[in-house]
């Protein structure tokens, strides 16, 4: 609507000031048309400069996020540092479990990312957005055509990540994958794992001799030990990578 009044005001000012011959009607009409024009220009300026007719709306959404490892074996959240200072990062996560496609946070001047470690088992992303919105339908009617409704002011992505998760840079993750798929390293790890599980198992049996006969319980424990080792080895590897 503001577009219509501005155009109308401009044309009306032109017609009244130029084509009305008699002085008094000319001045009166020019004054009225001029006020419409100036009012419209004032409206436009205060709309884009001071967000006239708008107010800030804060919305928060929380979603569960999953590991970027499609196999789901390793629980990890990735990030890509943008600058060398490490203050600005883009976080990469999966929206579904075992998802091949990952999502990432926006790298723009409006977005701010934060990371909190929790004792929770699951990882979450809480996205808080502050946007300009028109105060009323009337204001939207007047200025909505400019397309600035819901204009973004600030966006904060806060990741709540379990302490057990790995938070790695993309480079680290790649290196990790490379190391883990290395034949020699794999064989080595397997060997080490067997030794580790064996040792643990012996210790467990020494503690509780009834285990000797309980094969079911043994199997369960050996799986647990294997996983334990896996994580330990991974942590070692990651500290190496850093």
């Amino acid at each position: 609507m503001i577009v219509v009044t501005l155009i109308f005001g401009a044309i009306a000012t032109f017609i009244s000031f130029i084509y009305i011959e008699k002085i008094m009607p000319r001045l009166i009409c020019t004054l009225i048309a001029g006020i419409i024009l100036l009012g419209s220009v004032w409206g436009v300026v205060s709309n884009y400069h001071g967000h006239f007719g708008m107010y800030k709306v804060t919305t928060a959404t929380t979603q569960r996020v999953y590991s970027t490892d499609p196999t789901g074996k390793t629980q990890m959240l990735l990030f890509q540092p943008i600058g060398t200072a490490g203050k600005e990062n883009v976080y990469i996560y999966a929206k579904k479990a075992h998802a091949k496609k990952t999502s990432h946070t926006k790298a723009d001047e409006y977005t701010n990312n934060k990371l909190t470690r929790t004792t929770n088992k699951k990882a979450y992303l809480k996205r808080t957005e502050v946007r300009w919105r028109y105060k009323s339908a009337a204001f939207k009617f007047w200025f909505g055509i400019a397309g600035n409704n819901n204009q973004l002011v600030k966006r904060t992505n806060r990741f709540y990540v379990p302490k057990t998760w790995f938070v790695l840079t993309v480079k680290q993750a790649k290196e990790l994958k490379k190391q883990m798929s290395d034949q020699k390293r794999q064989a080595e790890l397997k060997e080490q794992a067997t030794i580790y599980v064996k040792g643990k198992m012996q210790a467990a049996i020494a503690k509780d001799p009834t285990l000797m006969t309980n094969t079911q319980q043994q199997k369960k424990l050996s799986q647990q030990f294997a996983a334990e080792y896996q994580e330990k080895a991974m942590r070692e590897l990651i500290t190496e990578l850093k």
Binding site: V3, L38, V41, V44, V45, Y48, H49, I145, A146, Q151
Partner: peptide
Amino acid sequence: VGTLPFIMITKQTPVLY
């Protein structure tokens, strides 16, 4: 009148304006 608004232009000023 048409030039004055430009001195208050912002980085988010709608293109239509």
